[in-house]
């Protein structure tokens, strides 16, 4: 109460800036000061009318309080007070569990750590996801590029360029039937035996498919180069391709067939028949 009055004095009526004296005024009225302090306050009050007025006001207030009659509290005051207490008790309890400094900090720390961890994991995951997806995308693009290059190069005049085209075809991941067809076309019609042979070797990996094997067996019929004949026979024997049996019989009977091809054909026939 005293404090409030002092504050009031400070803000509104107080013009003297001597806060030290001002703080002592109430105590001076209560005779609670040391003789030195009292002398100091009295000396100041002689000089400062503001503080004297202040003192007067405080004294008047004190007197008013002293003359205010005492009122007995209502009989149910205590019960109402307890009820009020209990009303406030519950929300207070809840607020305690949440707002107790110690656990709050812990929770906050845990949440921050969790969020940071989750963020890192998410970031990392999304990064690797985007990495792998972009790598797959790149690979796809490279494959497409190879296919475009291959289809362009395979028509080239220079046999080394066509060899390069066949090499691209080998490197295309998940080659399309289009690529297989170009390789078969090359195997059957390329003017250079070297390129045809490269195409045959490139087709080796697709020989697991029956339709490719059938076409390889058909190709064997038209090949005149002994090297190609041998490579195709060896490849098809690996997969036990029986559709080449008539061609092999032709080879073994034909006098013009290269000696080594004949040998190869006869060996293949013993395996297949």
């Amino acid at each position: 109460m005293k404090k409030r009055i002092i504050d009031y004095q400070k803000t509104d009526t107080m013009k003297c800036n001597n806060t030290q004296i001002n703080a002592l005024l109430t105590a001076y009225l209560d005779n609670a000061l040391t003789p030195e302090e009292s002398k100091m306050v009295e000396a100041h009050l002689n000089d400062c009318s503001d503080c004297l007025d202040e003192l007067q006001e405080i004294r008047t207030l004190h007197l008013q309080i002293e003359h205010t009659p005492l009122i007995d509290p209502p009989t149910d005051a205590e019960r109402r007070f307890r009820q009020m207490l209990e009303k406030q008790h519950k929300p207070q309890k809840q607020s305690i569990t949440i707002t107790v400094d110690f656990s709050w900090k812990k929770i906050a720390a845990a949440i921050i750590i969790f969020l940071a961890g989750a963020a890192t994991v998410l970031l990392f995951q999304s990064k690797t996801d985007s990495d792998t997806s972009s790598i797959a995308h790149l690979e796809n693009q490279v494959s497409q590029m190879r296919q475009v290059l291959m289809t362009a190069l395979i028509k080239n005049d220079s046999p080394s360029d066509r060899l390069k085209a066949v090499q691209y075809a080998e490197q295309i991941s998940g080659p399309s039937p289009e690529v297989t067809n170009i390789l078969l076309e090359t195997l059957n019609h390329d003017p250079s035996v070297n390129v045809r042979l490269a195409a045959a070797n490139a087709l080796h990996q697709f020989a697991v498919h029956q339709e490719v094997r059938t076409k390889l067996a058909q190709s064997l019929q038209q090949q005149s180069d002994p090297m190609l004949q041998i490579v195709l026979i060896k490849m098809l024997v690996q997969f036990h391709e029986r559709s080449m049996v008539p061609t092999l019989q032709d080879f073994s009977h034909d006098e013009k067939t290269h000696e080594m091809v004949k040998k190869e054909a006869e060996e293949a026939l013993t395996v297949l028949l």
Binding site: S158, S160, Q167, H258
Partner: peptide
């Protein structure tokens, strides 16, 4: 190194 080389003799 621009293009492959191939040498074949029967």
């Amino acid at each position: 190194q621009e293009a492959p080389s191939s040498i074949i003799s029967i």
